[in-house]
Simulated scan of single mutants.
Amino acid sequence: MLLSCRRAPERFGFGRPAAAHEIDSMAIAIRPDGRGLPRGSGDAVTGQVIYAAKCAACHGVTGREGSSPRLVGDTGKTIGNYWPYATTVFDYIRRAMPLNAPGSLSNDEVYSLTAYLLSANRVITEKTMLDSARLAAVRMPARNLFVNDRGR
């Protein structure tokens, strides 16, 4: 049996071009130097309240216990002794947390959670207000332990 060979249509008519605001909402890459950080701000006191409500179930009340990786402490790969850039902490929280609703936190909530975790790891003080400029300026203790391998 011979099948008829029809020409494919020029367009199927599926989808539509993405609007600029839709692209911008998904283009959320944050670089180590802080480029890409959004507007907003937060502090450790506010972050501790958010942490208790949205993070403690998995990471424990202090970030040292729980079923998920430890976030606070002097041993193991915690934020304070392993992560090379504070902006990476923000980026990870913004993209992946909380586990049951990734991407659901506001920018202010993410800044506050980042401030709380950096404060709990003694990287910044509890009174430090973080925004894009201040977060990019935070110097992490493990920064010099990483080798830049950009294939120069």
Rank of each mutant, 00 (worst) to 15 (best):
A115R: 00
V123W: 06
A86I: 03
T75V: 13
S67H: 04
E109V: 01
S104A: 15
V147W: 03
D91N: 13
Y116F: 15
A115S: 12
L118H: 07
R64A: 10
H59M: 08
Y111I: 01
S104K: 04
P102W: 08
R122V: 01
T62D: 15
P141S: 07
G73S: 06
P102V: 06
R94E: 11
T128Q: 15
Y92S: 14
G80H: 01
A120K: 10
A115T: 00
L130G: 06
I79M: 06
R143V: 11
G103Y: 08
I124H: 04
G103I: 03
R139N: 13
T125N: 14
G103H: 10
D91M: 08
M97Y: 07
L117Q: 10
A96G: 06
K77Y: 07
A115D: 03
S67A: 14
R64L: 07
L135P: 06
T128L: 14
L71F: 05
T114W: 12
T87K: 05
S104P: 12
V138H: 02
R134S: 15
D91S: 15
P102E: 12
L135V: 02
V72N: 08
P102C: 12
T87G: 13
G60C: 06
A142F: 10
I79P: 03
Y85Q: 13
V89A: 07
R70C: 01
E126S: 13
V110Y: 11
A120L: 04
R139A: 14
Y116K: 00
M140E: 11
Y82S: 15
E65P: 10
M129K: 11
P84W: 05
T128I: 02
A96K: 09
L145G: 15
P98L: 12
S68T: 00
S112D: 10
L105P: 04
V110L: 11
V110H: 12
M97V: 03
A101F: 06
V110K: 08
L71W: 03
V61H: 11
L105V: 04
P102G: 12
R95N: 11
R94L: 09
A142N: 12
S132F: 01
K127M: 04
L130K: 01
A142I: 08
T114E: 12
S106Q: 10
P84K: 09
T78M: 09
R122F: 01
R143T: 09
S106K: 06
R122G: 02
V110Q: 10
M140F: 11
T88V: 10
L135K: 03
D108A: 14
V123R: 05
F90E: 02
Y116P: 03
A136D: 03
W83P: 00
T87Q: 12
F146E: 11
D131R: 02
S119E: 06
